[in-house]
Design a protein around this nucleic acid. Sequence first.
DNA 1: CAATATTCATCAGACGTCTGATGATTGATC
DNA 2: GATCAATCATCAGACGTCTGATGAATATTG
Lengths: 183, 183
Amino acid sequence: MAGDPLDDLYDRPGFMIRRAHQIAVAVFLAQTEELGITTTQYGILVVLRHRPRIDQITVARLLGLDRSTAGMVVKTLEEGGLVARVVDPADKRRRSLELTQAGSDLLDRLAAPAGRAVAQLLAPLDPAERPVFLALLRKLTGAFDATSRVPLAKVPLVREPIVEEPVVEEPVVDDLDEPRPGP
Amino acid sequence: MAGDPLDDLYDRPGFMIRRAHQIAVAVFLAQTEELGITTTQYGILVVLRHRPRIDQITVARLLGLDRSTAGMVVKTLEEGGLVARVVDPADKRRRSLELTQAGSDLLDRLAAPAGRAVAQLLAPLDPAERPVFLALLRKLTGAFDATSRVPLAKVPLVREPIVEEPVVEEPVVDDLDEPRPGP
DNA sequence: CAATATTCATCAGACGTCTGATGATTGATC
DNA sequence: GATCAATCATCAGACGTCTGATGAATATTG
């Protein structure tokens, strides 16, 4: 199969990343099969464990989701009895979110399968390659955290004023031909 | 922000891969903005250029999509006049797919923006890091190409009997096969 | 204080993704 | 050659994802 012109497609980073995502989701679903949860739902549960009583817009920002997606998934979790949602009396625009006991219990039971999913996903890489791969993945994604289209804000535990630092190294501009200086 | 318990989530490979996918799609859409195409549609157009007159199930296999998704996106492309779809007279189950002139022209005009998307996506990595990252990504995804849940079959140009070779290097045990019950 | 701007939530619409079920057609088997 | 199995396509249903619009509530500012 040498010289297949489709290899140009298969070698595109975007194509391989789509495949990796598809695989990662499938592996997670397979490992957590009997618990009936998805990767996005899992992310929201983890966030709510560590940031109780936040609103769903903040959840969206912490996970790099848009407001609509976060709202939809939270609604599903609420209907499944895993998340409690009440109007914040201090700010009636907000829905204060919190894990229910069932949600907390489920999250506990997810620890083992979630760990197995990571192991299975990284199994094809040699042990020494894994931290290299993850470091490069972190470097790539982290560089885009501040972009306006798909931002991710690592809101700290204690809510501080969000300083909108003017981003110096915005990888979204046009000058893509020159090798870009690292941070 | 040291010691944030959410870092355990952010460091999960699945989480970073989801981010990377989200970013890759956004970058592609931004670069091809005026051409109005998506990453999946682009993949199908590329496949049809190099495998004219195949059916959509084969398209699905070549891209690692399920039949429904491929059918839906092909339908969109047909409605947009980019793909022609006719019933194969030799096998009336098949819809023979082919690029239209408009589809072929669009694909030509996509070459430059698609290249810029790759450059922008990889810009945060040092030039020496890029091939390392891509090689590890290829190693990881390639190891799952034969799994039954999300297979990808690199169907050769000349259609040969598809030998279902017993997979030697199945990453980690555990069945990925059983269907998942809804919640 | 009143007008304006921002923020949270939701809805509508579009696209992608998967599973499972159903028809139509073809291939294989006895 | 009739039956049975495999294959292509489509539909229904579910979930995730994004954009843009709208309404309600709060914050800002002149």
